[in-house]
Design a protein around this nucleic acid. Structure first.
Lengths: 74, 74
DNA sequence: ACAAAATGTAAATTATACTTGACAAAAAGA
DNA sequence: TCTTTTTGTCAAGTATAATTTACATTTTGT
């Protein structure tokens, strides 16, 4: 499940995955995997990413999983 | 660093650590450690907790780290 | 006071987030 | 075209999130 909001926020600051990775202190591969949605970062890393990209947790990391149903619009 | 907002939200629904742990699918000790602030849950677990407690990520998990200084009161 | 439930904490193990190194395919610039 | 940067991806290792079992302390109820 790709995190397009993350990718978009990073693009808005014209940063490469490498640059963002350096800024938050993880490897480029980790950033790539998070953006691709391969695995689940820790809340600490999410916070670090949010600070660098000037976004909130809700903006970047809330409900990234696919909505399973679409019948109920509540 | 204790997460009092989590503790409070749990208390508001009159749930024990055990009940919340069961609801989100982790062990009681894990819930205890998160509430106590001992370690860093994954974003997936944070989302699960938020859903059960009817809170957002920002409400429960934004900036739980200790305020390092107290001279600047914003 | 007593019992029962809820919480705090510790040690040993398992699952997985994250690293390092490496290589190939796109994209960006000359 | 050629070169460089960025991205995608794999495999093997390290760090740590999360589990289980177990026991002590605190709280709640009688």
């Amino acid at each position: 499940m790709k995190n397009l909001r993350l990718k978009s926020a990073r693009a808005a600051l014209d940063m490469s995955q490498q640059q963002l990775a350096d800024a938050v202190g993880v490897s480029r591969q980790t950033m790539n995997a998070i953006e691709k949605g391969d695995y689940n970062p820790t809340i600490k890393l999410c916070r670090a990413i949010c600070r660098v990209l000037n976004k909130t947790l809700d903006e970047l990391f809330w409900e990234d999983e696919e909505p399973s149903g679409m019948s109920d619009g509540e």
